[in-house]
C-alpha cells in the first residue's frame, strides 16, 4: 500500500523532470519561457512539500516571477530588433555558432559523469544527522525576530545577506552600463481592460508586498519576497505606460539604490527590499 502523498510526490517529481526536459527541447522561444515559468512554479510547490515555504515563496516571486518578466522583456526586445530589420528569423539572432557533433557528445558525456557523481555522493552521504537547527533554536532569543529563516538571513548571517544585496546592486549597475544607449522596444499598448486591472491591483500589491515584508519577522515571508512584489508594481507601471523611463531619472534611481544598500549596512532589515525593486 502506497500512501496517496507518495503518489503525489512521485507525480510532482516526474512533472518537474518532464518540464525541465521540455525547456531544453521546445523550439519556440516563447513556449520555452512559458514552460520555464511553469517549471519554477511547480518546483516551488515541491519545496512546500519539503516544508520550506519561505524558499518556495522566494522561488515563485523572484526565481520565477522576476526572472520570467526579464526573459519576456528580452524576447520582446529580440522581436523588436528583428521586426525592425524585417528579415532574419528570431532564432537566427539568439543562435550561437554551430558546434561539432563530437564536442556536443563529449559535453554530454561530461555532464553525465558529473550527474552520476552527484547521485553517488547523494546516496552515499551519511544519514541526516543533526544540522544547525539546534544552534539556531538556542540563539533565537537574541535575534529579535520570531521566524528562524529570517533570523538566519538577517541576524546570524547578515554579512552573507549584505553580500547578496551588494550583488544585486552590482547587477543593476552592470545592466545599466550594458544597456547604455540601447534603443528600447516600446511597451505595448494594453487597452482599457488592462488599465482597469492595474488600477485595482497596484494599491493592493503595494499593501500585500509590505505585509509580506512585515510578516517575515514571524512567519514565511520576508524582505526579498516583498521586494519582488514591489518590483511587480514597477513593472505594472511600465506596462500601463504610467511611467515612461527618462534619462533624467537615472541619477535619481542610482541614488536610491546606493542609499538602499547603505541603509542595509546601517542594520535596518528594510534595506533589503530596495534591491530587487530595480530588476
Amino acid at each position: 500500500m502506497i500512501a496517496p502523498l507518495v503518489i503525489f510526490d512521485l507525480l510532482l517529481a516526474l512533472t518537474i523532470v518532464a518540464l525541465a526536459v521540455a525547456v531544453l527541447c521546445l523550439r519556440d522561444l516563447f513556449a520555452m519561457i512559458v514552460v520555464f515559468i511553469i517549471f519554477g512554479l511547480v518546483s516551488a510547490l515541491a519545496w512546500v512539500r519539503l516544508s520550506a515555504p519561505d524558499v518556495a515563496l522566494a522561488e515563485a516571486a523572484i526565481g520565477t516571477g522576476v526572472t520570467g518578466a526579464l526573459l519576456l522583456k528580452t524576447l520582446h526586445h529580440l522581436r523588436y530588433v528583428t521586426g525592425r530589420l524585417g528579415q532574419n528569423a528570431a532564432r537566427g539572432l539568439t543562435a550561437m555558432a554551430p558546434v561539432p557533433v563530437a564536442v556536443l557528445l563529449a559535453n554530454a558525456a561530461f555532464c553525465g559523469l558529473i550527474t552520476l557523481g552527484l547521485a553517488v555522493a547523494f546516496l552515499g552521504a551519511p544519514a541526516a544527522g543533526p544540522g544547525f537547527e539546534g544552534l539556531v533554536a538556542q540563539a533565537m532569543p537574541q535575534s529579535g525576530v520570531e521566524h528562524s529563516v529570517t533570523a538566519v538571513l538577517l541576524n546570524f548571517r547578515a554579512y552573507d545577506t549584505l553580500m547578496e544585496v551588494v550583488v544585486l546592486l552590482a547587477a543593476v549597475i552592470a545592466v545599466w552600463q550594458i544597456e547604455r544607449g540601447l534603443s528600447e522596444a516600446p511597451a505595448p499598448v494594453m487597452g482599457v481592460v488592462w488599465q482597469g486591472f492595474a488600477r485595482l491591483a497596484l494599491p493592493v500589491i503595494v499593501v500585500v508586498g509590505t505585509y509580506l515584508l512585515w510578516v517575515g519577522a514571524e512567519a514565511p515571508g520576508g524582505a526579498f519576497q516583498g521586494g519582488a512584489m514591489l518590483a511587480a508594481v514597477g513593472l505594472l507601471l511600465l506596462l500601463t505606460r504610467a511611467y515612461v523611463p527618462q534619462p533624467g531619472h537615472r541619477g535619481l534611481a542610482r541614488g536610491a539604490f546606493v542609499l538602499g544598500t547603505a541603509a542595509f549596512c546601517a542594520g535596518g532589515p528594510s534595506g533589503g527590499q530596495r534591491g530587487p525593486r530595480g530588476l
Partner: peptide, 21 residues
C-alpha cells in the same frame, strides 16, 4: 506595530492609481 511599514504603504498604494490616466 504593523503600521510602521503599513501606513506609508497604504498612503503610497492609494496614490499610485493617480499616475494612471
Amino acid at each position: 506595530e504593523s503600521l510602521v511599514f503599513g501606513l506609508p504603504a497604504v498612503v503610497l498604494g492609494a496614490m499610485l492609481p493617480l499616475l494612471l490616466p
